[in-house]
């Protein structure tokens, strides 16, 4: 009895240590982020007056946000990126799950070879030029699909899914098959629901990837109306970098640049709390018995 009491106190101490560490971590992450947020609502001159680093502004000004939406391409860029993120992620998930599931079946002939090929394409690629031609020849140039199709399956995510499916107990699948369920049925009614944590994770990874698409936006898109968010954001951030052209250009202020950063990051960050709900412990409990 003494032993377990000792242990309980020891565990409580550990709990508090963990709380402390996590609290410190929160500070380390939040402070710089708060700086970006506050710099977007603080007039530049006040920012400078207080030494360039302000966490709590004395006055809030949303001028930068107004300026951002009225003078830049951010509005259309938002729509483009929303489309790419939603449609793109849907395609990503369907294709990836369909591909990863069979690969998790060790007894399937050719599985080893296919996985090797998958990894091979992770390491080797033909380069930007031939890929550009393929994108061009498949009619995707200067359209939002060029930001979706060429990257439709991320091998890394397929591997994550495959591993997870593989780790699920075989008895689960055998039981269903014996009951007469076909492969698709098993996939949809057993594998997918029970793999929620990894599926939500992979979905999150894809969403972030689609939201952040940049290089493809420069290479494959020419019209201003189709530019995705990250391309427009970079234009705003970089446009103040050139001295010689100050004569003509209106470089956006630091405040507006910070506003651009906030506007392009906040929406996708909001997705994360929704995904967190699926990180529930015990999802596998009773799966075999039940």
């Amino acid at each position: 009895m003494v032993r377990s009491k000792h242990k309980i106190t020891g565990e409580r101490v550990l709990d508090w240590v963990i709380y402390l560490i996590l609290f410190l971590l929160i500070i380390i992450f939040v402070v710089p982020l708060l700086y970006v947020l506050s710099a977007s609502v603080t007039p530049y001159s006040e920012l400078i007056r207080r030494g360039g680093f302000v966490i709590v502004p004395s006055e809030l000004s949303f001028d930068a946000y107004k300026e951002l939406f009225s003078t830049s391409l951010i509005g259309s860029a938002f729509k483009n990126t929303l489309f790419v993120t939603i449609a793109g992620t849907a395609i990503n998930m369907v294709l990836s799950i369909l591909f990863a599931y069979p690969l998790s079946k060790k007894s399937l002939p050719g599985v080893k070879f296919l996985t090797l090929m998958l990894v091979f394409t992770m390491m080797f690629n033909g380069g930007t030029i031939p890929t550009y031609f393929v994108v061009k020849d498949t009619g995707l140039l200067n359209s939002l699909w060029a930001l979706i199709i060429p990257g439709a399956i991320a091998q890394y995510n397929v591997i994550l899914l495959k591993n997870y499916f593989q780790s699920m107990p075989d008895e689960l699948f055998e039981a269903a098959t014996i009951d007469g369920a076909g492969a698709f049925r098993v996939l949809l009614s057993i594998a997918v629901p029970l793999a929620k944590p990894i599926i939500m994770t992979v979905m999150l990874l894809y969403m972030v990837g689609n939201w952040n698409v940049f290089y493809a936006g420069i290479l494959y898109i020419n019209s201003n109306e189709l530019k995705p968010l990250q391309v427009v954001l970079r234009e705003i951030l970089m446009s103040s970098q050139n001295m010689l052209n100050n004569v003509d250009t209106h470089a956006p202020s630091l405040t507006m640049r910070m506003a651009a950063i906030v506007v392009t990051s906040v929406p996708i960050i909001m997705v994360y709390p929704f995904v967190q709900r699926y990180f529930i412990k015990g999802i596998m409990v009773g799966a075999v018995k039940g």
Partner: peptide
């Protein structure tokens, strides 16, 4: 999109 462009190597 992956194997065919490899001729670019």
């Amino acid at each position: 999109y992956k194997f065919y462009p490899m001729y670019g190597a």
